[in-house]
Write a protein that binds this DNA or RNA. Structure first.
Lengths: 212, 212
DNA sequence: TCCCATTTTGACATCAAGTGCAGGAAATGG
DNA sequence: CCATTTCCTGCACTTGATGTCAAAATGGGA
């Protein structure tokens, strides 16, 4: 038991001397097939059996690649979370708390033109399908934990204190608002929208500025 | 089709001359039985069959009283939401946006000593059981919609604009933080904690004030 | 080359949440 | 006693998710 026990297939980057039978597909392939079906017939109307059939694996094997049907939508979220944590940790101590947060969140969510379409599809699903809206909360908790930990460090407090907790959840809130607006087509540039959202937060929602 | 079609039993207050067979139990009774089981064996470990058996109804009937097992936890949330909307609507136009919000949320969540225990149980479940954490997001969306509508009115904007959306989600965030801390035992007085959370938000999370 | 350890896969069984439907049971008014 | 209304129930069915166990594939060593 030297390494990770329940890590999904192809998690390690090195395709070195693999010992046993090799995986018949990849998470990415499964996700691709799933997205195709989601696009055509919707999330709820797509059964796990259909996805599995589309990739040529059994239903049981699907659940070895993804813990649940919902998780298909969340691609590399875990990785991005680590990147956010690192960015927050690297920020200079003198920079104001919310500035660091704003810069880091914006930076973490810069995507190439090629990724934007898929990201939008994902975000639309996440903000639209009730089951995914619900499940998102679980993922966002991890995000909050990262931000709360950072705020706690900055404020010399415990992550469970009111300060870090409110900062984290409020930050999550404004970020969600920005993302939802971008996914819904109400905003053109994701980075801009996130930036504006965090600036509003930093003003304490000053009514004069809110009207702009 | 004059009134509501899918309204749960005992929704109307007047127990007047009821025509057909009368309901064999009430939502409150079902909820009570369910909470008892949740307390003893946990939410996931309690099946709908068990709850139904405890109240002496069939599994099928349970789903006529509650849309899902999750919904049992959410008691009178819809009613409280209406109260919040009314309170927000009644606030004087001169009072600052966040002050109205703070006052209204605090006022809406004043509970008598008798209700606090049950409320705490509920909140612990909602913040603890993954399935309920997830489902809470769906309920909170309705809350956000109410707040966003209020903010939009105040700012003479659309509820979908960035201002109202960020205000609503940030407000939700700080409120959740306060509630979670109270439910977890980190705060003694719910109203106080909510009040403090909103005051932090109104300062734009000024670092000096955050350290208190 | 043959066997073994390792890893993935698949078939099967099982459980629990929901849902649609058809019919039965209780209550009221005539 | 009958008609009507309302509620309850049992059953079949779909779907997501999980446990178990044996078979298939693959590399390493004797």
């Amino acid at each position: 038991m030297p390494t990770e026990p329940p890590l999904p297939p192809e998690a390690a980057g090195a395709p070195e001397a693999t010992r046993g039978r090799r995986p018949s597909t990849t998470r990415a392939d499964v996700a691709r097939a799933a997205f195709g079906l989601f696009d055509r017939q919707g999330f709820d109307e797509t059964t796990v059996d259909e996805i599995a059939a589309a990739v040529g694996i059994s239903r049981r094997t699907f659940f070895r690649y993804f813990e649940s049907k919902r998780d298909v939508v969340w691609g590399e979220f875990d990785v991005e979370l680590v990147r956010l944590r690192d960015r927050l940790a690297e920020a200079p101590d003198r920079e104001p708390l919310l500035d660091v947060l704003r810069r880091s969140v914006v930076a973490t969510n810069r995507f190439g033109a090629g990724e934007l379409d898929e990201l939008r599809t994902r975000m639309v699903l996440i903000n639209t399908v009730p089951e995914l809206v619900a499940h998102a909360a679980v993922r966002y908790e991890a995000w909050c934990a990262v931000v709360a930990a950072f705020a706690a460090r900055r404020l010399d407090a415990s992550p469970d204190d009111l300060g870090p907790q409110t900062v984290a959840r409020a930050a999550l809130g404004v970020a969600m608002a920005a993302f939802a607006r971008w996914a819904g087509g109400a905003a053109d540039d994701l980075s801009d929208e996130v930036d504006r959202a965090f600036r509003l937060l930093a003003t304490g929602f000053d009514e004069a500025r809110l009207r702009t």
